[in-house]
């Protein structure tokens, strides 16, 4: 009754094994926010990052991993959480704006999530499409100290 999916056969175990390998893998590339130029290496893109499982009650074969029965609601750029020694923790860096397609970080100055990811420029442009709570919330946020994306190397 609780699980979204009923118990399944062996297949998901295979799945978790694959994820494990993914977790060990080198970074796939460097994520860079097109709004604030934040950069970080990412090791996974998708909705089921390493360390999570889409099925409840499995994964008992891999005792050294601690799976989170959860999944992401958007195609995200993900890295291993660098602030914890636990190898199975992940950190979502960002995703594409579902309106304009810009790659943006999850920082509150660049984007927000309301059932989908929207970059703040898009939200501001279409503010009336969002409920009042979002509008109020946006007013509270300070105007982002924009680092132009045209100068990606400004950091170095």
């Amino acid at each position: 009754m609780w699980g979204a999916l009923g118990p399944v056969g062996d297949m998901p175990c295979l799945l978790t094994l694959q994820m494990e390998c993914e977790a060990e893998r080198r970074p796939l590339g460097v994520f860079e926010c097109q709004l604030c130029a934040l950069t970080a290496p990412y090791s996974y893109v998708g909705q089921q990052p390493p360390g999570t499982k889409s099925v409840v009650g499995l994964g008992h074969s891999a005792h050294w991993h601690h799976f989170l029965p959860c999944s992401l609601l958007e195609e995200s750029y993900v890295m291993r959480d660098p602030f914890t020694p636990d190898k199975d923790r992940f950190l979502i860096l960002g995703s594409r704006c579902s309106s304009c397609g810009r790659l943006v970080c999850v920082g509150p100055e660049c984007s927000l999530f309301y059932s989908k990811r929207f970059c703040l420029p898009c939200v501001r442009e279409n503010i009336d499409a969002f409920p009042q709570e979002i509008q109020q919330d946006l007013e509270k946020r300070k105007v982002p100290s924009k680092r132009p994306a045209s100068q990606p190397g400004s950091r170095t």
Binding site: S71, L72, F113, P131
Partner: peptide, 19 residues
């Protein structure tokens, strides 16, 4: 977009039920 606001819509994760 969902009409009725719920803070849950602000979260990009979903959690499954217990084992």
């Amino acid at each position: 977009l969902p009409r009725a606001y719920d803070p849950r819509y602000r979260i990009n994760l979903s959690v499954l039920g217990p084992d």
